[in-house]
Design a protein around this nucleic acid. Sequence first.
DNA 1: CGCGTTTGACCGGCGC
DNA 2: GCGCCGGTCAAACGCG
Length: 158
Amino acid sequence: MSDKNERAADFSLDSDFTNHLSAELSEYLKFDDINEWLVDDDLQSFISSQEHQANVVSHFGEGACHYEGSSTRGNSSGYQQKVRERFSFKTMSKVDILDDGYKWRKYGKKMVKNNPNPRHYYRCSVEGCTVKKTVDRDRDDPRYVITTYEGTHIHPGL
DNA sequence: CGCGTTTGACCGGCGC
DNA sequence: GCGCCGGTCAAACGCG
């Protein structure tokens, strides 16, 4: 409880690096053919073996950002619509929730097996926006936070 | 008073 | 066919 002050200070720091993070994320979201170098895998595997996360996007101060992501490709039949994009990155942060400029409403919390820490489910507060986000801690390194975004914001960025 | 969080229940998919 | 596991819903509560 006494580390509240520490948290506040850290949050300030995180906020700064989050700003950069947000910008970078927007940039990444622009790429549609990003799935070229993506590993079509699910988050579970990502957590299980972080060996194949070969793509390190950037480093933000003391926080490292890893990019995984996956697109529903493979079907050449109806491949035209914007598919569900899922990407996750691992950051070293004391706070679970990194403010990325959007407003999120928590809609669930679940204890996943293989991980002593609960997983948090968030949804974009904007109506019609289908973006979801799950946050959970790395089972190997509890000091790391794995955030997974799913979907694209339909509303203009702030 | 409005809204976000909380928490347990519910449900659907998958594996055995 | 059943049970596990992950994901979502929804009522109630707490807070600003």
